[in-house]
Amino acid sequence: MSDTNWIDALSADELPADDVIGVVVAGQDIALYTVGDAVYATDNLCTHGHARLCDGFLDGHEIECPLHQGKFDVRDGRPTCAPVAEALRSYPVKVEGRRVLLRLG
């Protein structure tokens, strides 16, 4: 894939430290997570309860759904705690300069 497939999502200055934020990028509702110096991206909608994960609780690499307390690993979207059984779609992220870029394809 060429570098033209990366989409500018937001300024890195808008990312909260060790927390989650919801953004709409190219019409998709995305959750962006910062864990230390790393940034991760997944769909923002829980696969179980259809709640927005940006309203959940981030603990290390796990995001807890605010509706039924199921958990996902933000690094790859895999479920880590019931009642969640279906993985989230995750997306590659890179920070160039002060911009956060996503590859949604």
Rank of each mutant, 00 (worst) to 15 (best):
G36Y: 07
K71T: 13
D76R: 11
P16V: 13
G97S: 08
D37R: 12
T80E: 10
S90P: 02
D8V: 09
T4Y: 06
R52V: 09
V95I: 15
P83N: 12
L102G: 00
A41Y: 01
G77F: 01
C54H: 12
A41K: 01
P79D: 06
D3W: 05
A85V: 13
D18I: 08
P92W: 02
T4V: 12
T47G: 05
D18F: 07
Y40L: 07
E96D: 14
L10Q: 07
D19S: 15
G97Y: 07
R98D: 15
V20E: 03
R103E: 14
L58N: 04
L10D: 05
T4P: 00
V84G: 02
D59V: 09
A51E: 08
G70L: 05
E14C: 07
L15S: 03
V95C: 10
S11T: 04
L101V: 03
E64G: 08
E14T: 12
I63Y: 12
Q69K: 14
Y91I: 08
V100N: 06
E96G: 06
L102V: 09
D13N: 12
R52D: 11
P16N: 12
N44C: 10
K94L: 06
A38I: 00
R75T: 14
A41E: 02
I21W: 01
G56M: 05
D37S: 15
V74N: 01
L32M: 08
I21G: 07
D73A: 08
D73W: 07
G56K: 04
T47Y: 08
D19T: 03
M1Q: 10
R89A: 12
G60K: 09
D76I: 10
A38E: 15
V24P: 03
V24R: 12
L67A: 10
H48Q: 07
L45N: 01
I21L: 14
R52I: 06
E86G: 00
L104C: 11
E14L: 13
D76L: 09
G27V: 07
F57W: 15
H48W: 05
Q28T: 05
